[in-house]
Design a protein around this nucleic acid. Structure first.
Lengths: 346, 346
DNA sequence: GTTGGCACTCGACACGTTAGAGTGCTAACA
DNA sequence: TGTTAGCACTCTAACGTGTCGAGTGCCAAC
């Protein structure tokens, strides 16, 4: 069977209506409300075809039809019309970035709040991992045997951790290492540090044999900031307003899943599309507990460096057209703001 | 009417049973299950008295009785027996602190996870605010006109923020200020910095007139870290397992409340009891949305400095005896661990 | 290819009935 | 005077029944 224009129209009408009402849609509703110019009986025939093709399904015999995941996918890929943001929405976004900000983390978090408020779904934001380039390192001896390492990145991110050091190490030893590191590493990103610069540092510190071990350890361990991603989740309660979550069990499984931060890394990592918005529908998320949810995600960046991902999590019945536009717009705004913040920090 | 021993026994039995079953408790259940040695009819008389006194109430005419907030309060204050932790629980707590840790924030967060796992309720943890004493400051010029200020505290906490500086300020200017600050401020806490040391710094920097403004601004603004508390919430979905939350509306109001972090500051601030555990029941939280919840909280500290608060949030029908013991035990362990971490960092 | 008509299915809802749990009261008992 | 058994009463939860309406599939007619 082939998809023709009228089938597309019917599918479009059905999905639009279902997104708005959350109720199974019957043939008469489509015929009447969407002015198809044909009778309900004709629509019924088309719907039977669409069902056979797998785009819609019937919850039970005497109910209307509901889009299947495949139906949503077809809608997102081919039917969906671009939604332009209302003035109110534009205004909200613009004002969200007006306030003065202290650091990158704050901007990103505020983005999450805004995103969940505007869309009325949950927002997921992955904060910058160890992206950007090295700006400064400072080591502070906390007590004999342990020191605080603080690394400042050009993105404005600050990482810190406590490490053990040999008992004999003094603050001035730490200063020596810091100086060498700051001189050699500034402007390099973490990957190139590991590969090319170790030899130079080795040479530089050769007159301080006792510090070499510590310096190498630092590069190997403390600068390995991969574990530092931070997930921010906002507006989860929004999602509970959706009628598909009026069942406590569903809420429970969803929430217990959302508390496992690690899950999101694998989920969002697969967001390979380097620019543009990715839509993942129901089963495509590959998580049984989320087969009734969809995610709309996009990456944000400073210049060419991808910093992290923002996204919206809602029921499969979400208003894709609107959400995609909003995510697009917010990613643009966020990237711009970050760029503005970082201009010159290189 | 006066509270006598048998009334206490009845109240005790009723609360114990209600905590276990979440069902209104009838006279027969108490007489039979708790071997009171009297008939249900007698229990009925006692229950009528207890109701008149306000300790228990009846959801509807032909149901058993349920503890009132006043009843819980009496139970917590006078009746509750100390619950000793099972080996399994002790073991879990002990092992939670075994792993090596990188910084204070991590320990505190892990405590929250553990707390919610063991109790099966939600855990609330307020991370250290600007407690402890000043250890080190470092300023990094990010670009002409803006600088990163990083402050390290003796508690192992690291605060950072970006500030605007005059265009002419160079990295070596920043280093000058840092040096003065580090020399003068080390070991002082934030409060005494504001009061006593400004003059000394003023004097010290008088030969660098151009830096004075910046230095004063730093003290006034960047060291004012009050906004830096961080709430950690864990195991919220646990609370949904409680039968009192099998209603989606209740879940929604609770969740939307929990997303407002600010609320917790005022809630936990009033935890005036400097050591020991505070129990706040239902309406005592002073939040209409939480009148069916109770909180068990306690402060944790390094030495004499109170750093923050940990707590458990559950339904009023929570197992107070058990939760109080667990919170007590975890606070002790947490304080010890932090103390161990910080030994010598002064 | 389109349409109207008709029989059929199924869930939602309202209603009445029943079973069971628990109470309050009263009268008898120690 | 405190305790107990018995009894009538109340209320909820659960179940079964009947009705209504929405929606379908199919068929014959246009």
């Amino acid at each position: 069977m082939k998809m023709d224009t009228r089938k597309q129209q019917v599918l479009m009408a059905l999905i639009t209506d279902f997104i708005a009402t959350a109720e199974p849609v019957g043939s008469r509703t489509i015929a009447r409300k969407y002015e198809m110019g044909v009778s309900p009986a004709t629509i019924r025939n088309e719907m039977a075809d669409l069902e056979e093709m797998g785009f819609i399904e019937q919850p039970h015999t005497s109910a209307g039809r509901v889009p299947s995941h495949m139906g949503y996918r077809y809608y997102v890929d081919f039917l969906m019309k671009k939604h332009s943001l209302s003035n109110r929405e534009e205004e909200m976004i613009r004002r969200g970035y007006e306030d003065k900000v202290r650091d990158v983390g704050q901007v990103v978090q505020r983005t999450g709040n805004l995103l969940s408020q505007i869309t009325s779904y949950a927002a997921v934001v992955v904060r910058p991992r160890a992206a950007g380039s090295f700006k400064h390192v400072q080591m502070v001896l906390m007590n004999p045997g342990s020191a605080m390492v603080v690394v400042v990145m050009n993105t404005g991110a600050v990482h810190h951790r406590i490490i053990e050091v040999a008992g004999g190490i003094t603050q001035s030893d730490l200063d020596t290492i810091s100086q060498v590191f700051n001189a050699k590493l500034q402007g390099h990103n973490m990957d190139s540090i590991k590969l090319t610069l170790i030899k130079e540092i080795y040479f530089e510190l050769s007159k301080h044999r006792n510090l070499l071990d510590l310096a190498m350890y630092l590069i190997k361990d403390s600068f390995d900031l991969d574990g530092e991603e931070k997930i921010y989740l906002g507006g989860v309660f929004n999602i509970l307003n959706q009628p598909e979550f009026n069942n406590v069990d569903k809420v429970k499984t969803l929430l217990s899943l959302l508390e496992q931060e690690e899950m999101f890394y694998s989920l969002l990592e697969r967001n390979t599309d380097p620019d543009g918005v990715t839509v993942r529908i129901g089963e495509e998320i590959n998580r049984d507990e989320m087969k009734e949810c969809s995610m709309v995600t996009a990456a944000y960046r400073i210049g060419d460096t991808q910093l992290g991902t923002i996204g919206v999590l809602g029921p499969t019945r979400m208003d894709y057209a609107r959400v995609v536009s909003i995510v697009e717009c917010m990613t643009r705004n966020l990237s711009q703001t970050l760029e503005k913040m970082s201009r010159g920090w290189k």
